[in-house]
Design a protein around this nucleic acid. Sequence first.
DNA 1: TGCCCGATTAACT
DNA 2: GTTAATCGGGCAA
Length: 200
Amino acid sequence: MPRRIKRAFFSRSVHEVAPNLIGATLLVGGVGGRIVEVEAYHHTDPAAHSFRGRTARNAVMFGPPGYAYVYRSYGIHWCLNFVCEPEGSASAVLIRAIEPTIGLAVMRRRRGVADARLLCSGPGRVCEALGITGAYNGLALDAPPFELFARTGHLKIVAGPRIGITKAAEKPWRYGLGGSSFLSKPFASSSRSTGRMAPR
DNA sequence: TGCCCGATTAACT
DNA sequence: GTTAATCGGGCAA
C-alpha cells in the first residue's frame, strides 16, 4: 500500500519537492489520480506570484509549507499549488496535469467531456475536474478533503521549460512523467531542434 | 483611477 | 493559426 504524504514532505526546496510529486496520487473528496506534470515556482523567480511580495491573493504562499494555494487565472480558471519550504519563503509547486484514475464519472460530469486525456491535462482542467475553487485556498494538504499518497516504484521523470510564462521562461522547472499521454503538452525530445519543426 | 498583462482554455477561421 | 472570456496585481498618472 502507498504511504500517505505528510506535511513535512513539503519542508524542502520546490526543486526537490516538484520532481518527487510526479507519480504521487492526489485525491480531493475521493476523486483524482496520479500526478504527471508540475511546475516549480521559487520565491527568487521573477515568474512567481510571490516575487514582488505579499498580497491578499498570494498570502498563503508566505505561510507554512504543506498547504494549498489556489488562485484565479486569467479571471476564469482556478489553479492549485502546494506551498513548500520553511514558513515565509513563499515558494510553491503548480499542479499542471493528473492521470485520472478514481471518480472518472464525477470528473466527466464536471468537465463536460468524455475523453480521459482531456479531463485533467492542464492546471485549470485539474481544478475543474477535482472540484477545486478559491474556497480551498489555505487548506492543509494532509487533511480532508485532500489525500496525497507517495509514488511507488521507479518512474522516468523528465524536465523542461515551463509553459505560458514570459519571465525566466528558459528555466527547466517543469517536471513530468516521461511518455505519459495525460500531459498538458508533450516534453521536447532530448535531441535539440535548430530550426522549425520538420514536416511529417 | 486607468491601463496593460498574465502560472488558461475552448471555440473559432 | 487567432481570439474571447474576465479579473487581480502592478505601475503610471
